[in-house]
Design a binder for these strands. Structure first.
Lengths: 149, 149
DNA sequence: GGATAATCGGATTCTTATATCCTAATTATC
DNA sequence: GATAATTAGGATATAAGAATCCGATTATCC
């Protein structure tokens, strides 16, 4: 239901949030989060343009979060790569003279509002501080911590 | 956020539910609900295959609901054309040895569950019996009622 | 039984999303 | 200043979704 790009964007931002604050390269994020590296590069560019992530080029460069994880909502990530388009007026009403939605589109829009609400009330901090039973990611993070600086 | 095909499928089924029970042709539904007729034909075929709609060929043929509107949930329509794929296990965990989701995918899956719940608890009957302020559809339905049998 | 109205199904096109690759620009280090 | 590491951006390929078209099939009516 969510686009592949949204998936990758969320994974990337989670990776950065779970890291130690030093810049992470595309390659490392890609390996860590199992994302196609060349596509991830594009997604990261979009996140930079969207103001969620900062990049530094050159040796020892990479990507870091632009704000603290507690300041980043999941919704903001989605908004960058494929924003939820709420239904403003009934798409069957070509003249747009009705500001009230028809029952069908009221339901559709309501469903979207639930998602918006869910992602709008969750911060990255919550996601990374929650107990993490995913063994794959756990292992990767452990390797990261074991790295020499 | 929902596919165009889902939109069209829901519109078509609402049209049938709001009708008088006589078969409606693709053309009429298309005009009524502002859907590309040739594509609607495909969507209707899918709905027939999914068991939500019955079709009769030939003169005076067309499409009718397979069940009463009170027996059809919005979720069933979505399931036919683009079913919600709940996240069973973390897609970053290639071995699939963890049945518990990681925090990120727990959130993503939860958002989907909200949509599933919303559409799973709404019947077509509720949608069509709700007061309908969409002037476009109102007009079309009025025309339909004024038709000679 | 023939003419007509309608769905059905396949083939095709168009558009968008996903993914890859290569070159240019940038920066730390030696 | 040269070198290696890294992002940025453009061009391109591949896949999937959306939409169209047309001939075949089916059913009704006269």
């Amino acid at each position: 239901m969510f686009s592949q790009t949204t998936e990758y964007a969320m994974r990337a931002v989670v990776a950065l949030a779970a890291g130690d604050g030093r810049p992470m390269t595309t390659k490392r994020i890609a390996e860590m989060m199992r994302v196609p590296p060349s596509y991830l590069a594009k997604v990261l560019q979009a996140l930079v343009r969207g103001g969620l992530v900062n990049s530094t080029r050159g040796l020892r460069g990479g990507f870091v979060l632009a704000k603290a994880p507690s300041e980043i909502k999941l919704l903001a990530i989605m908004d960058v790569v494929s924003p939820i388009k709420r239904i403003e007026h009934c798409p069957m009403d070509h003249d747009g003279h009705s500001s009230v939605l028809c029952p069908l589109h009221r339901r559709l829009d309501h469903a979207m509002s639930l998602v918006e609400e869910a992602f709008g009330s969750t911060t990255l901090q919550e996601v990374i501080s929650e107990e993490n039973p995913c063994p794959t990611l756990q292992g990767e993070l452990q390797q990261l911590r074991d790295l020499p600086s």
